[in-house]
Computed example of a mutant assay.
Amino acid sequence: MAFAQPYTRKHRKQAAYPAWFLLPAAIIYTIFFLAPTFASLYFSLTRWTLFDATFIGLDNFAQFFREPFLVQGLVNTVVYAVITSGLKVVIGMLLAVLLTSQIVARGYLRSVVFFPVLVSTVGVGITFTVLMHPTTGMINQALAVFGVKGPGWLVDPKLALFSVALVDVWKGVGLATVIFIAGLVAIPRDYYEAARIDGGTKLQNFFYVTLPLSRPATVTVITLSFISGLRTFDLIWAMTKGGPGFASDTIASVIYKQYQAGFYGLSTAGNVVLFILIAVLVVPLTMFLNRKQGHE
Rank of each mutant, 00 (worst) to 15 (best):
M1V: 11
A4K: 15
Y7W: 14
R9F: 13
H11I: 08
I31V: 12
A35W: 14
W48I: 03
L50G: 14
F51C: 00
F51M: 10
T54K: 15
I56D: 01
D59N: 12
F61A: 09
F65N: 09
L70K: 10
L74H: 06
L74E: 02
V79N: 04
T84M: 11
S85T: 05
L87D: 04
I91Y: 04
G92S: 11
A96F: 03
A96Y: 02
A105M: 12
A105W: 14
R106N: 01
Y108M: 12
S111V: 08
T121S: 05
V122H: 10
V124H: 06
T127G: 03
H133K: 10
M138V: 14
Q141C: 04
F162A: 05
F162Y: 13
V167H: 07
D168A: 13
D168I: 07
K171T: 08
V173A: 01
R189I: 09
E193P: 06
R196D: 10
I197K: 05
D198M: 09
T201Q: 01
T201E: 01
Q204Y: 11
T218W: 02
T218V: 10
T218D: 01
T223S: 10
I227P: 00
T232P: 00
L235R: 06
G242C: 11
S253M: 09
V254C: 02
Q260A: 02
L266A: 11
N271F: 03
I276A: 13
V280M: 11
V280Q: 10
V283L: 14
M287Q: 11
L289A: 09
L289D: 05
